[in-house]
Simulated assay, not measured.
Amino acid sequence: MPKNKGKGGKNRRRGKNENEEKRELIFKEDGQEYAQVLRMLGNGRLEAQCIDGTKRLCHIRGKMRKKVWVNAGDIVLVGLRDYQDAKADVILKYMADEARSLKQYGELPEHIRVNDTDAMMEGEDNENAEYFDFDDLAEI
């Protein structure tokens, strides 16, 4: 059995995620579009609703693949393809505060929900949620 020469395993090689500093807000250029992730498909792909009204199949670029985790509901910047309108490439994921800033600047429309997870966690006053008591079931 070989002797261990290194210090630690996979987690040590991965390093700490220390990119919490403020980064400059990046706006879209020509050939790019803002989109909201509808669902994750696996294998580095996702389905996104672009701001221009088109649903596109998007591919997460290799630089982001295992470093930036994209979830459903996130706001992303996608690069459009000249030769395939139904497909795009994810260039950048916006953090929640950056997405709120984009909304304030008028880059994102008003109907876009920036942080769905925060709204669901606060949701005591959510009238759409269906609650039931097990005591109610005993009466049936």
Rank of each mutant, 00 (worst) to 15 (best):
G42E: 12
A48H: 11
K16N: 15
G106S: 07
I91F: 09
G73C: 08
K67Q: 13
R12L: 03
Q32V: 02
R56L: 04
H111L: 05
E130D: 13
E47H: 01
K103P: 01
L41W: 01
A99Q: 01
G15P: 10
M121E: 10
Q36E: 03
E21R: 14
F134H: 03
A86N: 08
D82I: 09
A72W: 03
A35N: 06
R14T: 15
K3Q: 11
M40L: 15
L46W: 02
F134K: 03
L38D: 10
D30S: 09
Y83R: 11
D118K: 12
N126E: 14
A119K: 06
G62Y: 02
R39G: 11
N43V: 09
L92V: 00
A88F: 05
I75A: 02
L38T: 14
N43H: 15
K28S: 04
Y131G: 02
R13C: 02
E122L: 09
V76N: 01
K16L: 15
K87E: 08
M121V: 07
I91A: 10
L41R: 08
N4H: 12
P109L: 02
L38N: 10
S101P: 08
E98H: 05
V37W: 04
G73K: 00
G15C: 12
G62M: 06
F134V: 08
A35R: 02
E110H: 13
G62A: 04
I75Q: 01
H59L: 10
D133T: 04
M1L: 14
G42P: 09
R61S: 15
R81D: 03
Y105L: 14
M120F: 07
N19D: 15
L41C: 05
V90A: 10
K66M: 07
I140G: 11
G73F: 01
G9A: 09
P109Q: 07
N4C: 09
D52E: 05
R113M: 00
R12C: 06
R39K: 14
H111G: 05
E139Q: 11
R61K: 15
Y105Q: 10
I60F: 08
N128I: 09
G9E: 07
K22S: 15
N128K: 12
V37D: 10
S101V: 11
V68K: 03
L102Q: 04
E24T: 15
E139R: 14
V90R: 01
G53F: 00
N128F: 02
A86C: 05
L108C: 05
E24C: 07
L57K: 03
V90W: 01
E122R: 08
A138D: 15
G9W: 06
D74F: 02
D118A: 14
